[in-house]
């Protein structure tokens, strides 16, 4: 457990010193969301109808773009090699890094989501569900995305590749995340969707660290 805290603290410190990363992710999220009214027109009804989907898609893309760097810099400067050689289990270290990634990108996205929901005229009774769904969904995005980020280490064209690998895996989270908000907007209970999202989160929590650690070991081999 010490190892988990150690790597989490170092990654948070790195993120704080480098600073820009979290801001960029949120900026990307806001800019992408802003594109939609230009694309479909500023009509309030249409925007309100597509708001939850747009926010989720933008969050998906933002999480994915930031993920590419999670292991890349560590891979390039030799840190990843030393992490696999440390006596701490690599799975735990992966979990620590993913956790740091979520705290620096997922959490700011959740904060920014209601602002975008207001701008897209989403109905008020969907807000709480949107936040809860994102709270459950974004850690799953970080966990699943970490597998893709580890698989592309050392590959040519890593950035484009990671989107091709990860986005199909994100579809269930998107479906149930947007579905939960939609249910809340219709005044139906979103419990079923949220529970399924919780199941997805638990499954990725159980499987993703192992798959990611495996991919990292291959990369440093």
């Amino acid at each position: 457990m010490n190892a988990f805290v150690a790597i989490l603290r170092r990654d948070l410190r790195l993120a704080m010193r480098q600073g820009a990363d979290s801001v960029m992710v949120v900026a990307f999220f806001i800019v992408t969301t802003t594109l939609f009214p230009f694309g479909v027109g500023p009509e309030v009804n249409i925007l309100a109808r597509i708001a939850s989907g747009v926010i989720w898609v933008a969050a998906l893309l933002a999480a994915m773009l930031s993920l590419e760097r999670v292991f890349q810099t560590d891979y390039e400067d030799g840190t990843l090699e030393l992490l696999t050689l440390s006596p701490a289990p690599l799975e735990l270290l992966v979990l620590g890094k993913v956790c740091a990634h979520w705290l620096t990108t997922g959490l700011p996205l959740i904060m920014a989501a209601p602002i975008m929901a207001v701008m897209l005229n989403m109905d008020q009774n969907g807000f709480a569900t949107l936040m809860i769904a994102m709270l459950i969904g974004t850690p799953a995005l970080s966990l699943i995305g970490a597998i893709g980020a580890a698989l592309i280490l050392g590959a040519r064209r890593g950035g484009v590749l990671v989107s091709l690998l990860v986005l199909p895996l994100y579809i269930p989270v998107l479906i149930f995340g947007a579905g939960a908000v939609e249910a809340a907007l219709l005044g139906i209970s979103a419990q079923a969707q949220l529970q399924i999202m919780g199941a997805i989160l638990l499954l990725s929590l159980a499987a993703a660290p192992f798959a990611t650690a495996h991919a990292i070991r291959q990369a440093v081999e």
Binding site: L151, A155, L165, P168
Partner: peptide, 13 residues
């Protein structure tokens, strides 16, 4: 090898 890992993750998915 990377592909094999991805195929397994995909199969779960």
């Amino acid at each position: 090898k990377a592909g094999s890992a991805l195929a397994l993750v995909g199969a779960i998915n």
